[in-house]
Amino acid sequence: MLEARLEQAAVLKKVVDAIKDLVQDCNFDCNDSGIQLQAMDNSHVALVAMHLKTDAFSPYRCDRNIALGINLASLQKVLRAAQNDDLLTLKAEDAPDVLNLVFESAENDRIAEYDIKLMDIDQEHLGIPDTEYAATVTMPSSEFQRICRDLNALSESVSIEAAKEGIKFSCQGDIGSGAVTLRQNNNVEKPDLSTIIELNEPVGLTFSLKYLVNFCKASSLSNTVKLSLSAEVPLLIEYKMESGYVRFYLAPKIGD
């Protein structure tokens, strides 16, 4: 059976908020390394991979591998009943029909209990190769969100170019064009505001802004986001959590 308790319901709320517009139904795979999910969007252009490691939970007990097939809209409805700082316990039998969620408020001894029906989801897992990326850029997640939103007002696509000096996001649309460049800067006092570029070689790729805007819903998970780029491979966007991550992979557009 599975029994996993999060100190803060907010963690799962944020994870679900981050991915629910990309993926409708998916398996939460529970095993001795924690709870993981991997799913593609309907158009197979983007892939999300999430891992909440066992450290994220206290206690964490999972006797055998369990796949919890969950409709994310349903899960979100139930999670709305939890306060951000409620204790959240997930429980399931070994071959479960339902996932049991218990929200406990430390302040007023309130205990809320919900069961959510599970579904059989036949989902294939993709092997994601270890990649040495041409460029890895760490930047404030709020800044990335703002850039994607601003450029999406002008265009469907964005070119991302990483070089030694900085990272440049540019787009061209019917009403005109736009470009935002972030120069490499190391903010010693506020490290989360830094833009750090690790470069093996300069790289430029084009991506659909619709998906990037969608990924930015994960911004509340982390103050920083890490973009990893290489020619001819999907862009990796990672939001790190205290004991886990949400990663998005986005297939590039082919040039002219």
């Binding site: 158009s43 197979h44 252009v45 892939l47 993709l126 994601i128 999907p234 082919i254 002219d256």
Partner: peptide, 14 residues
């Protein structure tokens, strides 16, 4: 025109 690639053309099923 720019074409959109898919994830499946990069990552193979396990």
């Amino acid at each position: 025109a720019k074409g959109q690639r898919t994830i499946s053309s990069f990552f193979a099923p396990k």
